[in-house]
Nucleic acid binder design. Structure first.
Lengths: 336, 336
DNA sequence: AAGATAGGCTTAATCGATTAAATTGCAACA
DNA sequence: TGTTGCAATTTAATCGATTAAGCCTATCTT
């Protein structure tokens, strides 16, 4: 029942383990291995059902061929989809993915980083949580390759792949204004992370450029851990304070779900009474009674780029920074 | 920049690596390590920022503390949610999760198993694809611990954790009949896997027991890879052949989405014209204009059980089989 | 006082690979 | 014939841990 090792093959064939290693790694040329014996070794390896022990390989080579993926929550469709694109792309580079969910908590993030470092991942793809700056700096100090996704820290020079949040947001809100909406509210996360701040900034600038009053404090922030509870409360307060709100811009997929649910429950009609634009796509939109306009992030591209950059970092080809802003598209679905 | 090893600590303190190992693994008692030196070692380890090399550990102990998770598609909410519960549960057992998506293809599944075996995972949690019986048998022959989830092979005696699909389905369709639906169609996957077959069987038995004709061939099967395209076609044919269909039972989350989309597009009113029950929950239901009744699988329980069983298998405590059927609940949402 | 016991620590083999360096055998060349 | 050169293969160190076994020294027993 024991797995067969290179040693077993060597013994079966009657050669040294070195030869077997050379052959099975296709280093016959460099190592000047004889043609016949190489073939014999190959046949025997197949016959015994040899499977290389990647752990042993890793220990010797210092490469685990594994990348650590840290997201806020793998069960969130946004991250689940990203994970899938990363999985597929990583496979092309012969990497395997270990994942972990930080729940947007810095301590969990640190814990995950430690665990993954102990497992000798060759690099990280991280959607960093608020307050994880030091963790990221520490990775940098240790010269451990990584790429940030979805968010980044403007104060730290790192590789990252993020959506152009400002532009996406700006475009979305301009669209609402173009629909003759006069009082556009935004529901965001309570977070100091750039991605949210940029979405808010895009919103505010779009209001200004549309000639709308941006001083009304129509941006409400919700804590990550209590979306379902808080969204309703916050939107209720907002509508009571400003009964003439005629549009909402939701800053994430979870916020959109909560927000739309609230609007449904309270019988607001979309788009007649209230117009809506959502950040992120959701298959749920297809079931909504009205066509919904949303910001579509290019997940496939993000995943591909992140893996590409990471792979280059790991192979040491790329000492310089790679900071990628991908453009998201506003998918307009309203009937005109 | 090199990571600090046990050797570095040993040198810094002036002892052998053995001592350091004993201390850092809390084996001081068994190994009779002196109190003072133990403390010195511990302090120095912290001071140097020592992080154990799990790879080296694994090589020596033969345990990678890693479990391989193979699902159809990590971006499918059902599997993404399961993955999350497995992640959390695995952490409690000090395991880390490597995942892979098989896309319901046996060759990809085999490929994933190989890759994960090379990485010396201690065990697998697998949602097996159609045609992967031999792969499962092979794992058994190699005495590699694993647990199947979501589906299993009746002809192979393995551990598994699955929903009681027959019962869930039966209950769902009985519910529809109880709503005075006379012609209930089912949309399923084209698959020989038990989970689907059991859902179909539950549907048929429910029809019979409700005094409804189950000979009408109202079950339509869709291929996994072309859901979006085929669901519409198939439902169209069905409605043309049987214009008096007054209910649909959808056999999975993706089928539900496609089916509901079709019903929406063709202006069927739910539940007035057509009643619907969906297998699996989806947050999308919250955005649907009508309350939807669905079968809720206890994902948390499934994940927990799967990890528990796997952990027991790995530790060798549990030679006997563990076959768990969890009950899913019919969440009735229609207004009465 | 001699032998036994226990405490404290080191030695060294091992896990399964990789790979630089050494070795062997043989043919070709001067 | 003796030397060189090259092809083919082996040797052995190494990666970073674990752990059984061994070796002192000091203390306890009788």
């Amino acid at each position: 029942m024991k797995r067969v090792s290179i040693k077993d093959i060597a013994q079966a064939v009657g050669v040294s383990t070195a030869l077997v290693s050379y052959v099975l790694n296709n280093k016959e040329k460099e190592a000047r291995v004889g043609q016949k014996i190489a073939e014999v070794i190959r046949v025997k390896a197949r016959e015994l059902g040899y499977q290389p022990n990647q752990i042993a390989k890793s220990l010797k080579t210092g490469r685990s061929q594994t990348i650590g993926l840290i997201v806020a929550d793998i069960s969130n469709p946004f991250f689940a989809n990203i994970a899938r694109t990363i999985e597929d792309e990583a496979k092309k580079y012969n990497y395997t993915v270990i994942f972990g969910s930080s729940d947007e908590a810095a301590d969990k993030s640190q814990n995950l980083i430690n665990i993954l470092l102990e497992r000798q991942v060759d690099g990280f793809i991280i959607a960093p949580t608020e307050g994880s700056e030091e963790q990221i700096r520490s990775l940098q100090d240790q010269r451990i390759p990584f790429v940030l996704i979805d968010r980044y820290f403007p104060d730290i020079q790192t590789n990252f792949v993020v959506t152009n949040n400002y532009q996406a947001s700006y475009q979305a809100v301009r669209h609402l204004a173009g629909q003759h909406r006069k009082k556009i509210a935004m529901i965001a996360y309570k977070s100091e992370l750039v991605h949210m701040k940029e979405r808010e900034r895009g919103y505010l600038d779009a209001l200004k450029d549309s000639g709308l009053d941006s001083d009304l404090n129509l941006v409400k922030e919700i804590s990550y851990n209590f979306i379902q509870r808080e969204v309703g409360e916050v939107m209720g307060q907002l509508m009571r304070g400003h009964p003439d709100i005629d549009a909402f811009f939701f800053g994430s997929n979870a916020l959109s779900m909560g927000g739309l649910r609230y609007l449904n429950r309270n019988n607001y009609r979309i788009p007649e009474t209230i117009s809506v634009v959502c950040f992120d796509e959701s298959e749920a939109f297809d079931l909504f009674y009205a066509p919904l306009t949303f910001v579509n992030q290019p997940l496939l591209e993000m995943g591909k780029e992140a893996v590409r950059i990471l792979a280059e970092q790991i192979s040491g080809k790329q000492p310089q920074l790679d900071q990628v802003f991908v453009d998201s598209a506003l998918i307009v679905r309203e009937k005109h």
